[in-house]
Design a protein around this nucleic acid. Structure first.
Length: 584
RNA sequence: GGUUCCAUAGUUCAACGGAUAGAACGACAGUUUCCUAAACUGUAAAUCCAGGUUCGAUUCCUGGUGGGACUACCA
């Protein structure tokens, strides 16, 4: 139980004792806003019916009760119906001790649950773009956050490696490629294949028969025509090599790889099952449908008249297989909000079939990344390529570091590692700090910031702390020893500053930020937390010298506090997939 | 047309139904004999419109206005 819940429970107890009411929903505890004195605030308005007293009188009564009965409550004040509760300094000192002694601070207790997070799921006919970057970063981060919340997590990627669109790039390469390969062209495999997908669409304008040819090729693929199949394997292999490089650079990974070419027949058995149960029906032409009009949706096709399955059919089958094979408690799909309808239908059909786990499917419906002129359109050449974007960010980071003279005395290797870390940090933070559900805007003409509420700002805060800690170690200061020799609150400075107390409180909030991020599938919650922490620390760092502090106990406490701030920044940023450098 | 999501400073983003709506960028004015100025401090600047529910609404409901997405026997 965290502190907030603990205070809430105590307040509920006070309300029960004082007014004989046990409705916990009436007890609202939140963190006290900065401009007021106190740590936690109880809103008393909902309690007035029970107390039959004025807001201030009610707040005062509860405040008195808590001060008298709760061991950690130090004092309270009442402002306009808000009861602000302060905890004892000794409580916070002990709390700081706990944080220092917990190497996995922020990690939740094991839930015993297994959650699969499906993300990325690219098509193998073109390279990744900015939209995919948001998907990949979100999916990876959400998976890591869910892990940190105590769940067992499986990251899954379902590669869309078959279909008419794949055949289009194959056909174009066959007709116009002249045997070009990634090696001969020097192009990254996914970019090479993407080039022929574009080529196909260009040529299609001149010659409409190409479409028929592509359809013919798809039939050949399904019949395992050796030539087509080999071409398919070759070109997909190029794409996988390319994707692998992009994934690696972005730092995303997977525990389970699924290929649609292997799963697209799944779900046909479910169609039979649905027919038998009377959930589905067959039309005269032989096609199979599910009537969802009673649920406010349309009729949904599940099997074509020719007996082939559609996207929905295989998704139903894939979901079933995953739940049974992996014994999942939950399945999270990180897929853009343009597919809201699809997932609505997916869940509905599964529950109509009687699968109770349909409820455990969660569609993390993230918003599109838009350009100033609107949605990215590959046909209009307005896509922002993932590899170009990453490379551009790293270059900018390199230039900026050089300009600021940050790389003096570093080897070329170190300098380039820092550029990579900072450039990617800027990009990832830029994307993850936004609420996943919201459409976000990216303007390629304006470079992503490195100042203010950005990844580099947070990375810089970390680097500065680490620098101070290195200097302390070089001077032979053993700041950890003071804590070890002291006991409990003695390890905290006697003359603790308000800013220092504030930092301890902020550190103490970290686990609940992680939990909230997990509950909401929102890395942005972690991003906001880490930014606030870094910002608060920077103000403290600016106003108070650490190494020049003359009182050794105070100095060592400041070092320990700084060390913990750096550690929590590092842990939080890791959940976003962002590395923090030792220097920059 | 139907379904659905969104609308907050000039711009990009915050705000479990709670206190004086927070940041950042940009603008303007400052801070460096001092642990990294990618930092810090200050000024100006916003809830699309009209109703309703509530002790209290940026948040919930209704209606408008403006924008996005979906509405394939594509995936």
């Amino acid at each position: 139980m965290n502190i907030e819940q603990n205070i809430g429970q105590a307040a509920a107890e006070a309300v029960e004792k004082l007014y004989g009411v046990t409705d916990e929903a009436l007890v609202q505890i939140s963190k006290t806003r900065k401009e007021f004195t106190g740590d936690y605030t109880l809103v008393v308005f909902p309690l007035l019916k029970a107390s039959r007293k004025s807001p201030d009188a009610t707040a005062a009564e509860i405040g008195e009760y808590l001060t008298a009965n709760h061991p950690d409550v130090d004092a309270f004040n009442v402002i306009k119906g808000f009861l602000n509760i302060s905890l004892k300094p000794s409580f916070w000192a002990a709390r700081f001790g706990e944080i220092c002694g917990d190497p996995s601070f922020g990690r939740g207790a094991a839930t015993g649950k297994t959650i699969m997070v499906e993300y990325s799921s690219p098509n193998t006919n073109k390279p990744l773009h900015l939209g995919h970057i948001r998907n990949n970063l979100l999916g990876w981060s959400v998976a890591e956050i869910l892990k940190e919340c105590g769940n067992t997590v499986l990251k899954a990627n379902l590669v869309n490696d078959r279909g008419i669109h794949i055949c289009k790039s194959m056909l174009a390469w066959q007709r116009f490629g002249g045997g070009e390969t990634p090696e001969s062209s020097g192009l990254k495999g996914d970019h090479l294949v993407g080039k022929y997908y574009v080529k196909f669409n260009d040529e299609l304008k001149k010659d409409e028969s190409l479409l028929t040819d592509a359809q013919q090729m798809l039939r050949q693929w399904e019949a395992h025509d050796p030539e087509v199949y080999t071409l398919w394997q070759t070109m997909n292999g190029w794409v996988y090599d390319g994707f692998e490089k992009t994934y690696k650079r972005l730092g995303v990974d997977f525990d389970r790889m699924y290929y649609e070419s292997q799963t697209y027949l799944l779900g046909k058995a479910l169609v039979e099952e649905g027919l038998a149960k009377g959930v589905f029906y067959r039309r005269d032409d032989g096609s199979v449908w599910c009537d969802l009009t009673a649920d406010g949706l349309d009729e949904k096709l599940l099997l074509r008249a020719d007996g082939t399955s559609v996207y929905m059919t295989q998704d139903l089958g894939t979901a079933l297989r995953r739940f049974t094979d992996e014994n999942l408690d939950s399945l999270v799909y990180v897929v853009g909000n343009e597919q809201n309808y699809h997932f609505q239908v997916l869940k509905l059909v599964l529950s109509k079939l009687g699968y109770s786990w349909a409820e455990a499917i969660y569609h993390l419906s993230y918003g599109m990344v838009e350009l100033p002129e609107g949605k990215m359109k590959s046909r209009e050449g307005t896509v922002v390529d993932a590899d170009d974007l990453v490379e551009g960010m790293v270059e900018t980071a390199r230039d900026m570091s050089a300009e600021l003279g940050k790389l003096d005395g570093l080897s070329a290797e170190e300098a380039s590692a820092i550029a990579e870390t900072v450039g990617l940090g800027a990009l990832k933070y830029f994307i993850l700090k936004v609420d996943p559900r919201k459409t976000m805007l990216f303007d390629p003409r304006e470079s992503i910031d490195f100042n203010g509420n950005t990844g580099p700002f947070i990375q810089y805060t970390h680097a500065r702390i680490r620098s101070v800690l290195r200097k302390a170690a070089d001077s032979g200061i053993d700041y950890a020893a003071t804590a070890a020799s002291g006991s409990g609150s003695a390890s905290v400075s006697e003359n603790i500053l308000p800013e220092e107390l504030e930092l301890i409180k902020m550190l103490s909030d970290y686990p609940s930020a992680v939990q909230a991020a997990g509950d909401n599938f929102a890395p942005s919650v972690v991003a906001a937390y880490v930014y606030d922490l870094a910002k608060a620390y920077n103000g403290y760092y600016h106003d108070h010298s650490i190494l020049r502090e003359t009182d050794p106990a105070a100095r060592d406490f400041r070092l320990r506090l700084s060390e913990q701030v750096a550690a929590v920044i590092k842990r939080g940023m890791r959940l976003l997939g962002i590395a923090v450098p030792e220097r920059m």
